[in-house]
């Protein structure tokens, strides 16, 4: 039972990882790529790591509970660190005056290497 729950959570996390990594390749400029990178990482880590924590709580012994607690700690850390890192990177780009893509630029291949 718990095995199936872990499978579902991990598969969902992998799907979101796939979608946002594709977004990292497809979005037209740096700012919108950051949307994909920052948000996808947070939710996919949440899904996969909670699935793994459940899997290790399968037979609760002291060692397994400690492992699950550590996985939860990684989760909380990613939860706090990911928005902060996103903010730091996007601020660095803004300060270095990376030009944002707007709809008016469409079709000029302004920022990307004509992918």
């Amino acid at each position: 039972m718990i095995d199936y729950l872990t499978m579902i959570l991990t598969a969902a996390g992998l799907f979101f990882f796939f979608a946002t990594t594709l977004g990292l390749l497809r979005f037209p400029d740096f700012y919108s790529r950051m949307h994909a990178a920052g948000k996808g990482d947070t939710l996919s880590s949440l899904l996969i790591l909670s699935g793994l924590a459940l899997y290790h709580l399968h037979d609760p012994s002291t060692a397994n509970i400690l492992v699950a607690a550590k996985i939860l700690f990684i989760l909380v850390f990613i939860f706090m660190a990911s928005p902060t890192a996103t903010h730091a990177i996007i601020d660095a780009g803004y300060q270095s005056e990376v030009k944002p893509w707007t709809r008016a630029d469409d079709g000029e291949g302004d920022d990307d290497l004509a992918v």
């Binding site: 979101f16 979608a19 946002t20 594709l22 977004g23 497809r26 979005f27 994909a36 948000k39 939710l43």
Partner: peptide, 11 residues
Amino acid sequence: KSTIHVAWLAL
């Protein structure tokens, strides 16, 4: 909600 939004846009 936001990740589903971004994933939908990316795909």
